[in-house]
């Protein structure tokens, strides 16, 4: 809560703003890069942000979302088939790209730093509140220096 006075949260899933603003100092990015929407937003964020932080194992290692990579390239069809037809009870139908519901999946799920330059990393699944606080505090004081268990995967 002491941190709340020191930062302005300008964009997040719980903020009303729909468009990522210009001139952002720091952005914590969670999640792996899985589809074209992710990739487009990520490039926009990189352009408009000074410091990017890959936040959590999915952003840092691609983690569970990247398990589909083990099926080999070209699994975009088969995973949708599995999710929307084989495992669906009702309305079994693969949404088509034109519907604008499911963005086109990338061939390969990537960690954030494989797509754009990332300044700092906070692994953890999920990162603990103490580690998030340490990271943001250190960031305000000049730059993160997380070490030991603070950077444990998983």
């Amino acid at each position: 809560m002491d941190l709340a006075g020191l930062v302005d949260v300008v964009y997040s899933p719980v903020v009303d703003v729909k468009e990522y603003p210009e001139n952002v100092d720091v952005c914590l990015i969670e999640g792996a890069v899985c589809n074209e929407d992710n990739l487009e937003l990520l490039h926009k964020i990189r352009q408009r942000t000074k410091v990017l932080i890959a936040f959590g194992d999915c952003a840092v290692t691609a983690n569970v979302p990247a398990m589909r990579n083990q099926l080999g390239l070209g699994n975009e069809e088969s995973v949708l088939q599995r999710a929307y037809v084989e495992n669906a009870q009702f309305n079994q139908r693969v949404p088509s790209a034109g519907d604008g519901i499911v963005p086109t999946l990338l061939k390969r799920v990537m960690p954030v730093h494989e797509a754009v330059h990332v300044e700092h990393f906070l692994p953890g699944c999920p990162p603990s509140a103490a580690n998030i606080k340490a990271l943001v505090t250190q960031l305000l004081a000049g730059g993160p220096k997380l070490e030991g268990k603070q950077i444990k995967f998983g």
Binding site: A66, Q70, P111, V118, F121, P123, G148, I151
Partner: peptide
């Protein structure tokens, strides 16, 4: 995992192979 965090591996710079 322990060696990773003790020796400062906060991310992996090489592309993951994702083998089957």
């Amino acid at each position: 995992q322990t060696l990773g965090y003790s020796l400062g591996v906060d991310h992996v710079r090489s592309d993951y192979l994702f083998p089957k």
